[in-house]
Design a binder for these strands. Structure first.
Length: 290
DNA sequence: GTCCAGGTCGCGC
DNA sequence: GCGCGACATGGA
């Protein structure tokens, strides 16, 4: 079975898939040919699917692996989730206008870069974001692999593919399990507490996505999550399509110093000044500033 | 062994 | 509001 999504004009599927590293973290799975990207997705009905994403002209194909049949309701759910992951409905016109006013940014417009793949739920992406802090990317990968392997539902008996854990699965096994088996270290408490708060329904994700709610207000809500500081905040805001905060971490500092301040050690204010003119697109400007 | 990683928390001032 | 040590883990 295959579902199709009609893509907006000039949608760069490859860029949207790979310009952010999320596609390398399960339950995204890269095929053996290195070309196809798949994802294990558990639906509200309980059905666990393996989706494979492909692009042909202005169509995004979603191949449902192993001939699983879907109800109309499940079809709607899959489409909705993939639209979210690929940011089909996000309007980047403002970003491209700023690019066209700046020297050296024509390629970003020409290649229609700017869409960064996200997971199908904020629950998952917030956990993954916490797993990127104060560690190396290779450990972010291994912690995420451990998480899905020990707490996620297995796709099939003859595979090593897993869905992302539900909050309930995390709560059921407990914080100590996250520490000793999943090897999340001191992050165990952060992840456990987040799953608990999430299960209690304290986060209003609709509000976070509502453009009428100012980013400052959303930011103050996100910052209340234990384990989320300024860096993780900017990543989570990026996930919900708000690009006004810069992810000031070791990579950011390295990039800005190398490119703009080779002879001095810049202050935080000096570093932030570089992207000031990008207003509500600072994050994207930094991300695509090669 | 020591240092540090795409940081953050909690404390004391 | 700042500065600073602690925090788990694994790779260099």
């Amino acid at each position: 079975m295959r579902l199709d999504i009609h893509l907006p004009k000039n949608f760069n599927f490859e860029a949207a898939t790979r310009d952010h590293g999320w596609y390398l973290l399960p339950p995204f799975y890269v095929g053996k040919d290195e070309k196809t990207v798949m994802r294990a997705e558990k639906l509200e009905s309980g059905k666990l699917l393996m989706l494979e994403f492909e692009n042909n002209m202005d169509q995004l194909h979603i191949k449902i692996k192993d001939d699983r049949k879907l109800t109309d309701k499940e079809v709607t759910e899959v489409i909705k989730r993939v639209e979210w992951m690929y940011r089909i409905n996000e309007d980047l016109t403002g970003f491209y206008e700023l690019c066209s006013r700046n020297e050296g940014w024509s390629n970003v417009v020409k290649l229609q870069k700017g869409r960064l793949l996200r997971s199908s739920s904020l629950f998952e992406d917030i956990i993954k974001t916490i797993l990127t802090t104060n560690t190396t990317w290779s450990r972010t990968v291994s912690m995420t692999e451990n998480l899905v392997k020990h707490l996620g539902e297995k796709y099939s008996n003859d595979s090593e593919l897993y869905a992302f854990p539900t909050p309930e699965a995390i709560l059921e096994k407990g914080e100590e399990f996250l520490n000793t088996t999943v090897k999340l270290g001191y992050r165990s408490k952060y992840i456990y507490d987040f799953a608990e708060n999430y299960a209690n329904g304290i986060y209003d994700f609709k509000e976070w996505q509502n453009p009428n709610i100012p980013t400052e207000k959303v930011a103050s809500e996100i910052t209340k999550i234990n384990g989320v500081g300024p860096y993780a905040l900017s990543i989570i805001l990026m996930i919900v399509g708000r690009y006004d905060f810069l992810p000031i971490d070791s990579e950011f500092k390295k990039h800005v110093k190398t490119k703009y301040y080779p002879d001095i050690t810049p202050s935080k204010a000096q570093m932030e000044k570089i992207y000031e003119e990008w207003e509500e697109y600072k994050f994207l400007a930094y991300w695509f500033d090669v």
